[in-house]
């Protein structure tokens, strides 16, 4: 497709046994972009990422990653991709330095000793380089894993839920690093469940049950879904929620702290309903700007559960 696309794949499909895990998935990732890969657990994100870096062979589909054929040139792709697995996959019984050194050797990094030393300094772990990786806390393991997959200066980073189970401070630092890399021209495909991370992406694709539901610039996704959301504040939200169910224009009701978000695609019908309830004076109603979370919950509810049916 476009000259600038780092990943350009169409019709990617994978079945395990009789389970259709990824179903004709298309993705185009422009160079230097931060591309958010969202979707519920088990939606096929990990499988897709594994197919992109040659760890799994697609059953169908074709395309290129860094200009190389995803089906036949996995070896070339691997050289320029940094892949961070969902589960910590460095050697827990090797030290921090030994792990970095090992990975650097796997990629044939030149000036390996210097590169590892720099990485240790960047990590802030130079004085603990001899510590076993297994003894690090979750946040540090994540930083080490990122350092390891950057050691060969890859052009493309595939990050599979890199911030799962990591504290907010470490998460913020991590994203600062991602943005810095993106500015330096590295393309990043990152899967996540966090909405605050999703909004930091340039582009988003949302996948559920192996099928892509929507993709586009992060700022436009919520608008693209076409959801209007009203916020209600006031007493006894449970009763209000029960009352709203099935009313004209109401497609989705979600609790956000002490408020209720009521969404629907038919803005006029929804407004009529809201105005009628507002008249009772019990709750304070206000129009919400389009949000990603509501959009995704809405998309998800409409998606067909592939895992409930077997492949014919």
């Amino acid at each position: 497709m476009s000259e600038a696309a780092v990943i350009d794949v169409q019709g990617l499909t994978k079945t395990f046994g009789s389970k259709l895990v990824v179903d004709h998935f298309d993705i185009v990732v422009p160079r230097g972009a931060i591309y958010g890969f969202l979707g519920p657990n088990g939606s096929g994100k990990t499988t897709t990422i594994r197919m992109l870096c040659g760890l799994l062979e697609p059953d169908a589909g074709a395309g290129t990653c860094l200009g190389f054929d995803v089906r036949r040139q996995a070896g070339e792709i691997k050289k320029q991709v940094g892949y961070m697995t969902q589960k910590f996959s460095l050697y827990e019984d090797l030290s921090i330095r030994e792990n970095l050194d090992f990975v650097a050797q796997m990629y044939g990094v030149k000036n390996r000793k210097d590169r590892v030393r720099t990485a240790l300094l960047d990590l802030g772990l130079a004085d603990r380089a001899g510590q076993l990786a297994g003894t690090l806390s979750g946040g540090w393991k994540q930083r080490l894993a990122l350092a390891a997959c950057l050691i060969h200066d890859p052009q493309l980073l595939l990050l599979d839920e890199p911030t799962a189970g990591v504290d907010p401070k470490a998460r913020r630092d991590f994203w600062d690093e991602i943005r810095r890399l993106s500015k330096a021209g590295v393309t990043v495909l990152v899967s996540t469940h966090y909405m605050d991370e999703a909004v930091q992406c340039d582009f988003i694709t949302y996948i559920a049950y192996g099928k892509k539901l929507i993709d586009g610039p992060a700022a436009e996704i919520a608008t693209m879904v076409g959801l209007t959301t009203w916020r209600a504040e006031g007493p006894d939200l449970a009763a209000l929620e029960a009352e709203l169910g099935g009313q004209a224009g109401v497609a989705q009701i979600a609790r956000f702290g002490s408020t209720l978000h009521v969404s629907g695609t038919d803005a006029t019908a929804l407004e009529t309903t809201v105005r009628r309830l507002e008249a009772s004076g019990q709750h304070v109603w206000s129009l919400q700007p389009a949000g990603l979370e509501e959009a995704f919950i809405y998309l998800m509810a409409g998606a067909q559960d592939n895992f409930a049916r077997d492949v014919p």
Binding site: C53, G54, L55, G75, K78, K79, V81, Y83, T85, K87, F88, S89, L90, Y91, E92, V103, M106, Y107, G108, A148
Partner: peptide, 13 residues
């Protein structure tokens, strides 16, 4: 079992 194989084979080894 430990998942390190996934890291290992994601490299050009």
């Amino acid at each position: 079992e430990r998942g390190t194989m996934e890291m290992l084979i994601s490299t050009p080894v």
